[in-house]
Amino acid sequence: MRSLLPILTVLAAILGLWYLAVAPMNIRVALDQAERGGATITPEGSLARKDVSTWVLMVRNPDHISAGYTLERPRLPTPQQVGQELWKTTGKMAMRGRAWSKRSLIYHGWITLQSTFWGFLLGTTLGILGAVAIVYSRVSDLSLMPWAIISQTVPIVALAPMIIVLSSQLGVDGRVVPKAIISAYLCYFPVLVGMVKGLRSPGRDQLDLLRTYSASGLQSFVKLRLPASIPYLFTSLKVGIAAALVGTIVGELPTGAISGLGARILIGDQFGTPLAIWSALIAAAILAGVLVTLLDIVQRLTLKRMGMAA
């Protein structure tokens, strides 16, 4: 509860800025519409207004600024409009029993969530296995780590279409697998880095102590390195799940997908409906928030059970 006030303060600041930004963003569309409706605008004609700055337009036509807040197809919708659209495509549809309609964000969110989940699972597994290899073998430390870093410098947007093409070439039907691969590609890295750090966190004394017991390599892994890495693992998992969601959405963007939050964003862009883009964006943000919060709860419960309550 103590953390609620700062979060709400930041949220209020963002909403305030957002509302302020709506006026200059929408002024041109608002003026065009008003002119078509018979109002007198200075200067006349949208062509003439092209070279006039937004601020001058607002100063010269103060009566029409408010119209920018109620447009049907705004450049920048108000938070209220986004909220209404979000409700219309989620809760309202669900109440009418149409949650799985192609127009419902619940349906699209579920599609994205599935790929995110598989990508997260794949990425986390690869990240943990890679970390174990790096910690236990000098060869993989020298060979794997640089490539892991290089892999993250390649823009995922450039890579995504290739992964889609390759997987369909290999006879993989559907989009879940290629999307999960793209998602895993972004997700494995934070897990790898965090786990390498976690598995290496026991100090020399801790390792020497196990040597005095002449413990085997497996014993020191299970009894020392693995439990010592758990706090690091959860921190990376929280970064990883957010990265997996971003990866899935990116995987849905340039690939002609028709379902998923990324596809909604792309379609909204192509059909000139910013409201659809914004509500899909906010839906993605809410989804990410829920996933990270869930992991946070699991982390607290696990560390508490382990006696390492933070």
């Binding site: 004394d205 801790q206 102590l209 005095t212 020392l224 439990p227 010592a228 006696g307 390492m308």
Partner: peptide, 14 residues
Amino acid sequence: YGYVFQAAGLYPWR
């Protein structure tokens, strides 16, 4: 032998 280090080095999760 049993070895005792300067830091107790107990595992916090046990």
